[in-house]
């Protein structure tokens, strides 16, 4: 009886983040942490850290134009994705060094930017996608705030 009550008290405390070390030890919840993860530096992760977030965080240096992108597209992408982005067999597109030029080319094909606009880490996040306000969360109460 006493043990159960102690356990419940400790759980409630944990839930609000106020558990004292003594309380945890008493309830047996203070399991030792394995601590087997190896610390890793940003430099170590760089090759994998490829996310570009909607605000532009993560964009690499460099720039590109639709004209440059059209040339890269014709040699590296058109085989699977079709000429001018239509009629290919695949939908996914590649990143890497030609990122800005290819992105500029695709945006230009869709008439979202002009044919001579330069895309880089400053200009790309400012491009307003046509469906930007077209999304609604299914369960707003489950969205982080």
């Amino acid at each position: 009886m006493r043990t159960r009550k102690t356990g419940r008290t400790a759980l409630v405390a944990l839930a609000v983040g106020l558990a004292s070390a003594a309380g945890l030890a008493q309830s047996g919840l203070d399991a030792p942490k394995p601590n087997l993860g190896q610390p890793v530096s940003d430099a170590d992760i760089a090759a994998w850290d490829i996310h570009v977030l909607p605000d532009g965080t993560g964009l690499p240096p460099g720039s590109g134009t639709p004209e440059q992108g059209a040339k890269i597209y014709a040699t590296k992408c058109a085989l699977c994705h079709g000429p001018e982005g239509k009629g290919g067999t695949n939908a996914a597109l590649v990143g890497g060094q030609p990122l800005y030029a290819l992105t500029a080319y695709i945006l230009s094909l869709n008439k979202i930017i002009g044919p001579t606009d330069v895309m880089n880490a400053q200009t790309l996040p400012k491009v307003r996608m046509p469906n930007r306000d077209g999304f609604i969360p299914r369960f707003p109460e489950r969205m982080p705030n």
Binding site: L36, G37, Q38, P39, V40, S41, D42, D44, I45, W48
Partner: peptide
Amino acid sequence: LVIHGLVRRPLVFTLDTL
């Protein structure tokens, strides 16, 4: 498996350690 970003200590795990 790498866990990083807004964490106090970025860590990498192998299958054996997990």
